[in-house]
Computed example of a mutant assay.
Amino acid sequence: MSHIWPYLPARAVNITSLIEFDRLASEALAATSARGLGWRVHRVDLRERDCVLRSLDLSEAIFIDCEFSPQGRALVQATGGLCMGSGQELPFTTGERGLYSPEELYSGIQVESYDQVPDAKIYAYSQQHTSPAVRTSDDAMARTLHDHHIGQALVSEVYEGAFKDSPLIGVMGGHAMGRGTPEYERTVELGQLITRAGYAVATGGGPGAMEAANAGAWLADYDPKDVQGALKMLAAEPDAIHQRTGWARTALAVKERFPSSRQSLGVPTWFYGHEPPNLFATRIAKFFTNSIREAILLEQSNGGLIVLPGAAGTVQEIFQDACENYYATGARVVPMVLLGREYWTKTMPAWPLLKALAAQRVMEDRIALVDTAAEAMEFIDSMSTLRRRTRW
C-alpha cells in the first residue's frame, strides 16, 4: 500500500531528486514502451534533461514545481504530460457546497491553457500536498471535508434535485475511446436513447466512452443531421490527453452551437487527474478519493448499468456492482447489461463468469448480453427500478 494512500495511486512513483529521475528514466528507456507511467516529479531541476524528456512517453506523468530549459516544458507537454505549480492557497472549498459545473472547473479555458483552469490547479495541489515533504493533517482534513460535502450534494441531486424524477443509468467504459470513431458515435446514440426514455446518464465523468455518453444526453433532442455536425466538430480535436486545451474548447463550441437543457451526471476523480473531466456532464461530482467515487457512482445508478467494452477498471466495475446484486433481495437488484457479445464472451470473457455468479440468484434474470444500444434499453425498460437506499 502506498504510504500516501488514498490520495495518490498505489503504484504512483514519487520522484523528488534528480538521482531518482535519472535512475527511473534509464529503466524506462531500456524498456519497450519507454513510458513514465505513474510518475509524480516534485521540485526537480530538469534543465539539463531535454534529451531524456524528448525520448519518453510522459502522458501519465505530472511535473510539479520543476525547473525546465526553455524547450523542456514543451517536450513534456508534447506527449501529454502535465507541468504545474502547486500554489500556496487551498484551491477548493471545504464547506457545504453543490456539485461542480463544467463552467466552474474550466473557468478561463477560452483564454488560458488547461493547466491554468481550476480543475488542473486542484489536481496539482492535491499531488504536491500529498508528498511526504509537504503533506499535513490539515491538507488531509481539507480533502476529506471536500469529498464529504460533494457526496452529500450528489445524493441531494439524486433524491431532491436534477435527477429526482429520472432514475440514473450508469454507462461504464474506458477513456481510450476516441472522438471520430464508430464506437464513439454508437455511445452517443446510447446516451440519447437513455435520455429520451426518461432516464438520466451517469458516467465516470472523464473522456472517451464517458464523454460520448454524456454528449449523447446533451444532444438527445437533436436530429441525426445535427448530431453528425456535432460529432464532426468534436473529431477535429480528438485527444483529451495530449491536447487537453483544444479538446475542451471544442466541446464548449459544440455546446454553444447546440444548446440543451438535458441533465446528466459525471463522477470523475483527481486520483486520475491526468484525464480531464468532460464538459457534457451538467452536474459533476468530482472526488479526491477514488474508492468513494467508484462506490457512489455505482450506488446511485439506480436505473441500471450498461457496460461498454473496457479494460481492468471496467471489469472491476462489473463485479463490484455484481457483488451488491448478488446479496441484494427482490426489486433492489439493479439490471446490468453488457454491450458487445464478441467482446464480453471472447476478448474479455466476463460474461460467462457473471452468468455463473448469477445462477439461481435473484439477479439471474436481471443481467443481459446484447449487441446494440436499442437492445440494452429494451432490456432495462422491461425491469422495474427501485432506489437502492434511502437518503443519507
Rank of each mutant, 00 (worst) to 15 (best):
K346S: 04
G330H: 15
Y326F: 14
G330N: 15
T347N: 13
S301I: 03
G310P: 09
R341C: 07
Q300N: 11
V334I: 01
A350G: 13
T345P: 04
L298G: 13
Y327W: 14
D321A: 14
N325V: 13
A311I: 00
W351K: 07
V334E: 02
E317Y: 08
Q300T: 12
S301Q: 10
L338W: 11
I306Q: 09
D321S: 07
P352N: 02
N302R: 04
E299Y: 13
F319W: 13
L338Y: 14
Q316S: 07
A322K: 05
W344V: 09
W344S: 05
A311P: 02
E342A: 06
A311W: 01
D321F: 14
Y327C: 03
P349L: 00
V333K: 04
Y326I: 01
E342Y: 02
M348Y: 03
L339C: 06
M336N: 07
T345L: 04
A331Y: 06
T329M: 04
L298F: 05
A350C: 15
I318F: 12
P335L: 12
E324W: 05
L353M: 14
G310H: 08
A322C: 13
R332D: 15
L308T: 09
I306K: 12
L297T: 00
L305Y: 15
A312F: 00
T347F: 03
F319Q: 07
P349A: 01
S301W: 13
V333C: 11
P335T: 13
V337Q: 07
S301E: 06
T347K: 02
E342P: 00
A350S: 15
R332H: 15
L338Q: 14
S301H: 09
T329G: 08
I306A: 06
G330M: 15
L298H: 12
T314S: 02
Q316P: 04
M348H: 06
W344H: 12
G304L: 00
P349R: 02
G340H: 07
T314H: 04
G330I: 15
Y326L: 14
A311C: 01
R341D: 03
R341E: 14
Q320K: 05
V333E: 04
E324V: 05
R332K: 15
L297I: 01
A350M: 12
T345S: 07
Q300S: 10
W344P: 10
E324T: 03
S301R: 13
L305M: 12
K346A: 04
G304S: 10
I306S: 12
K346E: 10
Y343W: 08
E342K: 08
L297W: 02
F319D: 05
E317V: 06
I318Q: 08
